[in-house]
Design a protein around this nucleic acid. Structure first.
Length: 411
DNA sequence: TCTGGGGTCCTAGGACCC
DNA sequence: TCTGGGGTCCTAGGACCC
């Protein structure tokens, strides 16, 4: 029998903003951007939620609901910094920690009674430690599975601790909406409603064969979840067994849709460079590159290409995403462009297609580029046409002696 | 309501191989 | 000439999460 904690920070982004500007406290605050921008709500304070504002809601809608709300852009670096602080505390509490996102984590504290006391006492202790070190509130769910611990922390919000005793899982879950099950979104909820299933208890009362015939593999997992079990997929994994990133991506939505080829190419190059830079930073090479294109009507296509040899070099990404773009763009105004790198390989070093000497020079040049970007911002250095037409004047800012792979690179 | 950006996982079909 | 049954890789799309 395991003892799992799910720690979830309360209104995380908003709470961090309040640390830097205490005058925001108690007011309706919306993190995500200005209300006249394209975008959605990243986080809303509890005061803002009273007006019906919630995350993922378009900013314009939030503005209509509460025009006097305070809209802030949000500083992601700050949130990451505080996320690290929280992680350090959790890690000091139990070695089996897994950050599930920037503001939530699972801990396996099975057998830690001698160290931290019984579950409820341990949870309160951890709650105090987090509060003490960060001045931030969180909620903690305690249960025998990740699934129940997670639903539990949600029920405990805000700033609460809730423990579901072993064997009480199904009784705790039964009266809750099926939507509370992680993985059940709008679509699955509607499908379940269509079968007359509204509460988790309704789900628990059905037999597995029925659910499997209706929802396939997912139906089988749902049957287990209704009983409070970590059935299927990610939930089954041991805490702390996470094996690193599976993909790295960047995307950009234009303030206004554009069909200007130079603009689109510049964005594409920029996004490719950002992805390549992060590949190098994290020591990955990618074999699959994917382009994402979204048009005015929100219709979205993705087109992928898998390389013979994995890469982490700007010009490789730029070349391939550009090719994908030109063979798939229909010429109509574009709302969003995205670049994704997947099929990641840890492969030590090897830059394929280059001999040892050139490889070394490339590596030095590219890490110099990354250092400059760190110091002067990602816009300061560019290898290709990432600068909206004005790149020629900037090319000399690139590190000297960039060995070109073909006549196109370099200046 | 006019819909961000960063991710994960799943499905389904086709190519290809034995 | 009317055709099996894996297994794996690749691609595209979609549901979902924070």
């Amino acid at each position: 029998m395991k003892t799992i904690f799910h720690v979830d920070m309360d209104a995380f982004f908003v709470s961090v903003e309040e640390l830097f500007d205490p005058s925001l406290k108690g007011k309706p605050v919306v993190v995500g951007g200005r209300p006249d921008q394209r975008g959605v709500v990243s986080a809303a304070s509890y005061a803002a939620r009273k007006f019906g504002i919630h995350s993922a809601m378009p900013l314009r809608t939030a503005y209509k609901l509460c025009p006097h709300a305070i809209f802030v852009e949000g500083r992601r670096e700050r949130y990451i910094e505080y996320s690290h602080k929280v992680f350090d505390i959790l890690n000091s509490f139990s070695p089996l920690v897994e950050m599930a996102s920037i503001d939530e984590a699972y801990l396996d504290v099975t057998g830690a009674e001698r160290l931290h006391g019984p579950p409820m006492q341990a949870a309160h202790k951890l709650h105090e430690m987090i509060r003490g070190a960060t001045k931030l509130n969180c909620s903690i769910g305690v249960a025998t599975s990740r699934l129940v611990a997670k639903i539990c922390s949600d029920q405990a919000k805000p700033n609460g601790v809730l423990w579901i005793l072993p064997s009480m899982e199904a009784r705790f879950l039964a009266p809750l909406d099926v939507r509370k099950i992680p993985g059940v979104g709008k679509v699955t909820e509607q499908a379940l409603h269509a079968c007359g299933i509204h509460k988790i208890g309704d789900l628990a009362a059905l037999d597995e064969p029925f659910l499997e015939s209706r929802f396939g593999k997912w139906g089988l997992a749902l049957a287990g979840k209704a009983q409070g079990l970590d059935a299927g997929g990610w939930f089954d994994a041991e805490i702390g067994a996470g094996d690193g990133a599976k993909s790295i991506s960047h995307e950009h939505t234009y303030l206004e849709d554009t069909a200007e080829p130079a603009t689109l190419e510049a964005t594409l190059a920029k996004l490719s460079e950002m992805v390549a830079s992060r590949l190098r930073e994290s020591g990955f090479h990618a074999r699959t590159l994917q382009l994402k294109l979204r048009y005015k009507d929100f219709s979205t296509i993705t087109r992928a290409h898998t390389l013979d040899h994995a890469t982490q070099i700007d010009i490789d990404l730029i070349e391939h995403t550009r090719k994908l773009f030109h063979t798939n763009w229909n010429g109509k105004p574009v709302r969003l462009l995205g670049v994704n790198a997947s099929n990641l390989e840890r492969a030590e070093g090897q830059l394929p297609l280059l001999d040892g000497d050139r490889q070394e020079r490339w590596k030095k040049a590219l890490s110099a580029v990354d250092r400059m970007r760190d110091r002067f911002g990602s816009g300061s250095v560019s290898l290709a046409s990432a600068m909206d037409g004005g790149f020629r004047e900037r090319v000399h800012e690139s590190p000297a002696n960039l060995p070109g792979r073909n006549s196109k690179s370099g200046s």
